[in-house]
Amino acid sequence: MAEAPPRRLGLGPPPGDAPRAELVALTAVQSEQGEAGGGGSPRRLGLLGSPLPPGAPLPGPGSGSGSACGQRSSAAHKRYRRLQNWVYNVLERPRGWAFVYHVFIFLLVFSCLVLSVLSTIQEHQELANECLLILEFVMIVVFGLEYIVRVWSAGCCCRYRGWQGRFRFARKPFCVIDFIVFVASVAVIAAGTQGNIFATSALRSMRFLQILRMVRMDRRGGTWKLLGSVVYAHSKELITAWYIGFLVLIFASFLVYLAEKDANSDFSSYADSLWWGTITLTTIGYGDKTPHTWLGRVLAAGFALLGISFFALPAGILGSGFALKVQEQHRQKHFEKRRMPAANLIQAAWRLYSTDMSRAYLTATWYYYDSILPSFRELALLFEHVQRARNGGLRPLEVRRAPVPDGAPSRYPPVATCHRPGSTSFCPGESSRMGIKDRIRMGSSQRRTGPSKQHLAPPTMPTSPSSEQVGEATSPTKVQKSWSFNDRTRFRASLRLKPRTSAEDAPSEEVA
């Protein structure tokens, strides 16, 4: 009796068929016929556990003709996506030579605008209408194809895939403007070719909807975003200037109206006075309405000098805001240009540092100066060695804690006790272990408590650290204090090793 083939788990290929790579489910599931010992083939499952149809090819690079078809379809799909992405970037994010197409579109729109203006002049109306009709045909074809291509290429973005995504893309403001202008152009052409009475009025009214094509030149909205950011950044200043200017306008108009309503027919109503105030304070000055009385002229002159300053403030605020924003954008561009080279330089330096163990090129690091100058660790070890030599091999803490019996001779020589300023008595072995921070803190506390006492003391002649007598400086308080830590004499004296002298005989010792 033939044995059933062993159940295979995992992703390994079956024996005897090495080139074939078959994806098997996580659990080997066989058909009921196979479990019962029949000759049925096992049921194939996909990666998600769903059964595959009987005629479906197995996924994998070596699955025969199905694999070749899959490779061809995958390559075609990649080319399709690449083309779609390229078209989308050309239309929505132009760079380099892609601006040539947008310059061509701008020339078409500008020519249409010029011809629309010439069509309103009686001398050039006939020729402009003929040229404009031909140009409209060209623009309908160009913009119609462009609109379709834009909607198709938007599928390269995830949020615009599918018919719902394309509809979302078509609802964008600039796409809506394109659609309105396209419909208006078709209506103008249809009305112009019919030759009816309505054609002339339709051409004159709907052609100027094509002015909206100038708005579509900035599809990404960079200028509007820049203007919005400047207004938002200086909103408080703008609101303040406009508010005060509006108050000056209504008060000036009302007072001039009261002064001129009886003697001047131009100011017969408050609305006429508001019109005069707006034209005057905005420095336009049509001259259609002028005050005639001396009181009205004085009020107009005073409020004009006051109001023009507030009406001119928004222009200066926006101008300075634009300058600052442009400078910030230039700085951001320079930062973006330098970020990648800086990151590459840091990575290269780290690779060199991690692979080169000698690091002989590091001549400006802490390790280099640590090898030249005595390190703080060596100074600490030197302090501890000196203290243990004086205390008979014991550390200062051990000397303080060691009990001394009554009447027993002390094995240590008597030492002079010292007192730290602002604290109780402490171990004499710690007097010379006072660090730089303690010395600086002690000097600052003395300056806070009594700076007036220092200038009363007789001035001391500054001497070099080499000429100081070591026996005289029994305490860190003898170090000359200065008002600034930048004094080199104080810094050098604080680094010197001060020996400890006994109370009975204080021989001067120098520590090399």
Rank of each mutant, 00 (worst) to 15 (best):
85 N>K: 01
40 G>C: 06
167 F>L: 05
76 A>E: 14
302 G>C: 04
5 P>R: 02
103 V>F: 02
192 G>S: 15
341 P>L: 15
175 C>S: 07
217 M>I: 14
86 W>S: 07
24 V>E: 05
56 A>V: 11
232 Y>D: 00
64 G>C: 13
141 V>M: 00
298 V>L: 07
315 A>S: 05
35 E>G: 13
346 I>M: 04
21 A>V: 12
272 D>N: 02
101 Y>H: 04
216 R>H: 00
344 N>D: 13
30 Q>E: 02
36 A>E: 08
83 L>M: 08
63 S>Y: 15
234 H>N: 09
88 Y>H: 09
317 I>T: 15
26 L>R: 06
15 P>T: 07
289 K>M: 10
245 G>E: 15
45 L>R: 11
199 A>V: 00
347 Q>L: 07
186 V>L: 12
56 A>E: 09
90 V>A: 03
34 G>R: 03
20 R>C: 05
328 E>D: 12
39 G>V: 01
220 R>G: 02
341 P>A: 15
31 S>C: 13
344 N>K: 12
177 I>V: 11
66 G>R: 12
27 T>A: 01
250 I>F: 02
258 L>M: 10
211 I>L: 05
284 I>V: 06
179 F>S: 14
71 Q>K: 07
134 I>S: 01
105 I>V: 02
239 I>V: 06
129 N>K: 06
213 R>G: 00
150 R>L: 09
24 V>L: 09
262 D>G: 05
112 C>S: 11
82 R>G: 12
248 V>M: 02
216 R>L: 04
73 S>F: 06
191 A>G: 02
53 P>R: 02
209 L>M: 03
241 A>D: 13
347 Q>H: 06
31 S>T: 04
149 V>L: 05
191 A>V: 15
340 M>K: 14
162 G>E: 02
89 N>K: 10
113 L>M: 02
113 L>P: 02
52 L>P: 11
158 C>S: 12
178 D>E: 00
130 E>A: 06
220 R>H: 01
176 V>I: 13
58 L>H: 08
221 G>S: 00
258 L>V: 03
178 D>H: 00
319 G>S: 15
102 H>R: 02
78 K>T: 15
204 R>L: 00
215 V>A: 09
167 F>I: 14
156 C>F: 04
1 M>L: 04
70 G>D: 04
324 L>V: 15
80 Y>C: 14
319 G>C: 15
170 A>S: 13
330 H>D: 11
297 R>K: 05
344 N>T: 11
330 H>R: 15
161 R>Q: 04
192 G>D: 00
21 A>G: 07
80 Y>D: 03
89 N>S: 10
300 A>T: 04
96 G>D: 02
49 G>C: 10
179 F>V: 10
225 K>Q: 00
332 Q>K: 11
168 R>L: 13
18 A>P: 03
295 L>R: 01
17 D>N: 11
262 D>E: 08
204 R>C: 00
131 C>F: 06
78 K>M: 14
30 Q>R: 03
147 Y>C: 03
156 C>R: 04
85 N>I: 09
190 A>V: 15
159 R>C: 15
200 T>R: 15
268 S>T: 08
197 I>V: 09
250 I>L: 09
302 G>A: 10
304 A>G: 07
196 N>D: 09
327 Q>E: 13
42 P>Q: 08
151 V>L: 09
98 A>G: 14
41 S>Y: 04
281 L>M: 06
15 P>L: 02
9 L>I: 10
34 G>V: 11
148 I>N: 03
4 A>P: 08
128 A>V: 06
345 L>F: 11
245 G>V: 01
157 C>G: 11
191 A>S: 00
177 I>T: 02
70 G>C: 06
106 F>S: 04
343 A>S: 03
325 K>E: 06
23 L>V: 05
109 V>L: 00
181 V>M: 03
268 S>Y: 01
19 P>A: 12
266 D>E: 04
12 G>R: 10
7 R>L: 12
62 G>S: 02
183 V>M: 08
175 C>F: 00
17 D>H: 15
96 G>S: 08
55 G>V: 04
93 R>L: 04
140 I>V: 04
206 M>V: 00
272 D>A: 00
170 A>V: 01
140 I>F: 08
117 V>A: 15
40 G>R: 09
41 S>C: 02
263 A>G: 05
196 N>H: 01
86 W>L: 10
184 A>D: 00
255 L>V: 05
8 R>H: 12
175 C>Y: 00
56 A>T: 02
74 S>A: 12
32 E>K: 05
75 A>D: 08
53 P>A: 07
115 L>R: 01
58 L>I: 05
72 R>P: 04
147 Y>D: 06
340 M>T: 05
335 F>L: 09
189 I>T: 13
332 Q>R: 15
195 G>C: 15
340 M>I: 13
124 H>D: 15
171 R>S: 07
67 S>P: 02
141 V>A: 12
80 Y>S: 15
69 C>G: 04
223 T>S: 00
30 Q>K: 01
57 P>S: 10
77 H>P: 15
72 R>L: 11
159 R>L: 13
57 P>H: 03
329 Q>E: 07
223 T>I: 00
327 Q>K: 15
144 G>A: 12
184 A>V: 00
110 F>C: 06
50 S>N: 10
219 R>S: 01
25 A>T: 01
35 E>A: 03
225 K>N: 00
63 S>A: 15
111 S>N: 02
292 H>D: 09
330 H>N: 11
53 P>T: 02
14 P>L: 09
68 A>V: 09
218 D>Y: 04
148 I>T: 05
103 V>A: 08
79 R>P: 11
184 A>S: 12
168 R>C: 11
31 S>G: 05
134 I>L: 04
46 G>A: 06
193 T>P: 00
53 P>L: 08
149 V>I: 08
303 F>S: 03
254 F>S: 00
97 W>R: 03
35 E>Q: 08
127 L>H: 04
132 L>F: 07
126 E>A: 08
33 Q>R: 11
43 R>P: 04
19 P>T: 14
113 L>Q: 03
194 Q>R: 08
61 P>R: 07
195 G>V: 01
169 F>Y: 02
97 W>C: 02
101 Y>F: 09
42 P>A: 05
48 L>V: 10
127 L>V: 06
32 E>A: 12
146 E>D: 10
158 C>G: 01
110 F>Y: 00
203 L>P: 00
7 R>P: 13
251 F>L: 07
14 P>T: 03
325 K>M: 00
36 A>T: 10
326 V>F: 15
6 P>R: 08
109 V>F: 06
219 R>P: 11
16 G>R: 02
202 A>T: 15
122 Q>K: 13
232 Y>C: 02
228 G>A: 05
43 R>H: 11
131 C>Y: 06
3 E>K: 09
186 V>M: 06
37 G>S: 10
173 P>L: 04
290 T>S: 00
201 S>P: 14
240 T>I: 00
79 R>H: 12
251 F>S: 14
200 T>M: 00
90 V>G: 01
295 L>V: 13
172 K>M: 07
157 C>Y: 05
227 L>V: 00
268 S>A: 03
310 F>V: 00
167 F>V: 05
168 R>G: 11
282 T>S: 07
222 G>D: 14
95 R>C: 10
8 R>C: 11
30 Q>H: 01
236 K>R: 00
130 E>V: 09
120 T>S: 05
164 Q>K: 08
99 F>L: 08
71 Q>E: 05
2 A>V: 10
1 M>T: 12
220 R>C: 00
245 G>A: 15
298 V>A: 08
329 Q>L: 02
25 A>P: 01
28 A>T: 12
19 P>R: 11
81 R>P: 07
209 L>V: 11
180 I>T: 03
67 S>F: 12
206 M>L: 04
58 L>R: 04
230 V>A: 15
147 Y>H: 13
188 V>L: 00
49 G>S: 05
73 S>C: 08
144 G>V: 03
185 S>P: 01
228 G>R: 00
133 L>F: 00
124 H>R: 04
212 L>Q: 00
328 E>Q: 08
131 C>W: 04
89 N>T: 13
71 Q>H: 07
20 R>L: 03
100 V>L: 03
45 L>V: 13
203 L>M: 11
34 G>C: 05
269 S>C: 00
